[in-house]
Design a protein around this nucleic acid. Structure first.
Length: 581
DNA sequence: GAGGCACGCGCC
DNA sequence: AAACGGCGCGTGCCTC
């Protein structure tokens, strides 16, 4: 399809074109920018249009304000990787795109599990449309000055043509696979993640460094202790003792062998079974080294100079379960230790609200399995782990009485959702395989509905070739041959877990949509700053923090109840100067 | 020197 | 006999 370009390089041209643009029922939208970071680059071109006509606006010469009502309005805007353009347009023009249709997310929803990469427009255009997209022109915008070449404009136009056509190819496929609801949810969630990334999360860097410095000292002490523990078996060369690099699992394993501790690997689970003074030193060293490396100075490099905040990159479909992942930096694996979380603070006059779904996955399992004890426990707001332990061991168990039995039940309860077998349970509980097997048997005898549900999940996935969440999200599997027991076992475990983890993902995404909507409707002085699977963190003006906390809680419950129809939803909310939990 | 893998470990 | 689901990151170590 040949471009039909209207190049708008004077404000009046935009006003002239406006009636034509407004008359379109649906637009593809794209931007060309000088870089990837909205804070450090400019928008050069904004393109809106369809395969019939493409309006390319020179943003250096023409204000895009007249397009506000279109971009923020109800009619659909098709974009590829919408979060990128959303952030650019929001940051530079204070216009927040609404009703986005993201062809990249849709493709990921359609192909979830069938394909790991290749979701760029340059991959999809040839596949769906038989059009080759030459992305090389994109780089010509990076340091662009002066007028645009024809090939630059044609490139800009072709991108919205192919994005538009791509969406038209995808929509019937979504219908055919019954994935419309999931696609809609994903598209609705884009602006929440766009906002979170633009908002950033304030970090108290001084406080953070204090922890790191402390860890360095402890690590160095642990290293000295380790040297002593291994002194007798240091390998020597001509120049004297050669240090063992304790960061190298190979070297550490070899050194342990020389201590006559013949371990197969050096993982925590392996080492924990060994009684030897060196082992605790290893654990101490690794714990501190982890802090120094993963959460050390390098982490602080991500703090932006202009606002002292971390602006991570969320991958909305980072996991095949539907979960979000996070990078640069990952704000979803910050140590839950309060020392670290307390470094994420609210600026003066503001507070942080940490809100999380309590027992989310187990509630979902209760809903899905219809197990009477699980249902009853949540309905009466009792402690599930204690109840489970009581039923399994026929002894009174609570958080105070026979707590060790509660701990075991807790491990099984969580492990279940991961398709845990006796082997893994034995390792986790540090028990014999026989004991673990007996425990699992007892568990499933007590909760036959759980067993039935999980096994059904596994069987269905192998029969149909996919698993499904309550929101209708699908994860496709390549089903191995009958005789490939190991591969089938792996898929069975994934299939047991996916509906649970994935429904949790559906739920938190819907919550993010609701919370954002309410913030905007009520015009609250609130920023969403992070989300971690079953948790939302928002930064609020202190004056209205109670109102906001109640709102966040309500919206999360509303989202939860969309999925959990028979099990109550519970949200725990903490208000503090810092990130809690 | 870059890129990719395995390992180990932080989170839910 | 047996691998507990989903991630990202730093390090070591190997290959090219």
């Amino acid at each position: 399809m040949q471009p039909n370009i209207s190049f708008i390089d004077e404000p009046q041209k935009l006003l002239n074109a406006l009636p034509e643009i407004e008359a379109m029922p649906i637009w593809a939208v794209d931007t060309e920018t000088t870089g990837l970071d909205p804070f450090e680059s400019e928008v050069i071109l904004l393109q809106v249009g369809s395969p019939l006509k493409q309006y390319i606006i020179d943003c250096r010469k023409v204000a895009v304000e007249p397009l506000r009502s279109i971009l923020e309005g109800d009619k659909p805007k098709i974009l590829h990787n919408a979060k990128f353009d959303y952030k650019m347009i929001s940051h530079h023009f204070k216009i927040n795109l609404e009703n986005m249709v993201d062809t990249m997310l849709i493709e990921q929803v359609l192909m979830n599990g069938k394909m790991k990469s290749g979701f760029g427009l340059k991959d999809l255009a040839p596949r769906y449309l038989g059009i080759e997209v030459d992305k090389s022109e994109r780089f010509s915008f990076l340091a662009h000055k002066g007028d645009f070449s024809l090939s630059q404009l044609e490139y800009a136009a072709r991108d919205i043509i192919s994005t538009y056509l791509l969406a038209m190819e995808q929509l019937p496929r979504l219908h055919k696979e019954a994935l419309e609801d999931t696609a809609r949810l994903e598209c609705l969630t884009v602006s929440s993640f766009g906002d979170i990334e633009l908002n950033g999360f304030y970090l108290d860097q001084r406080r953070w460094l204090t922890i790191v410095e402390e860890a360095k000292k402890k690590r160095d002490a642990a290293r000295i202790a380790l040297d002593q523990a291994f002194e007798a078996v240091h390998q020597k060369d001509l120049f004297g003792a050669v240090e063992i690099n304790y960061d190298s699992d190979q070297q550490l394993k070899a050194a342990l062998h020389r201590l006559e501790l013949p371990v197969e690997d050096t993982s925590r689970n392996t080492l924990i079974k060994i009684k030897h003074p060196a082992i605790d030193r290893i654990f101490e060293y690794r714990e501190q080294q982890k802090i120094v490396t993963t959460y050390g100075e390098a982490f602080l490099e991500w703090v932006k100079k202009y606002d002292g905040r971390l602006h991570p990159d969320f991958h909305q479909l980072g996991a095949e379960s539907g979960r979000v992942s996070c990078t640069r930096p990952n704000l979803q694996n910050i140590p839950s230790d309060s020392d670290f979380r307390a470094c994420f603070t609210a600026p003066p006059g503001r507070k942080l609200i940490t809100a999380d779904y309590s027992g989310c996955e187990l509630r979902i399992l209760a809903e899905l399995s219809r197990d009477p004890t699980f249902i009853d426990t949540f309905r009466n707001n009792r402690d599930l782990h204690s109840i489970v332990a009581t039923q399994m061991y026929h002894k009174p168990v609570s958080k105070k009485e026979n707590k060790e039995l509660r701990d075991k039940a807790k491990i099984i309860n969580f492990g279940l959702a991961y398709g845990m077998g006796p082997g893994a349970l034995a390792i986790t509980l540090n028990a014999t395989a026989k004991d673990a097997e007996a425990l699992l048997k007892g568990y499933f005898k007590t909760f036959p509905k759980i067993k039935e549900y999980l096994e059904n999940s596994a069987r269905e996935a192998l029969e149909r070739g996919y698993s499904q969440t309550m929101g209708g999200r699908k994860r496709y599997f390549v089903v191995p041959k009958e005789d490939d027991r190991a591969a089938r076992g792996a898929i069975e475990r994934q299939a047991k877990n996916m509906p649970i983890q994935g429904t949790n993902a559906d739920m938190i995404k819907l919550a993010l949509v609701f919370v954002r909507r309410e913030i905007n409707h009520r015009q609250l002085d609130v920023k969403m700053v992070n989300t971690v699977h079953d948790e939302v963190v928002v930064e609020s003006a202190e004056a209205q923090v109670d109102e906001v906390a109640a709102m966040v809680r309500d919206k999360m419950i509303e989202a939860g109840e969309y999925f959990l129809r028979t099990i109550p939803v519970d949200v725990e909310c903490t208000i503090a100067d810092h990130w809690s939990k």
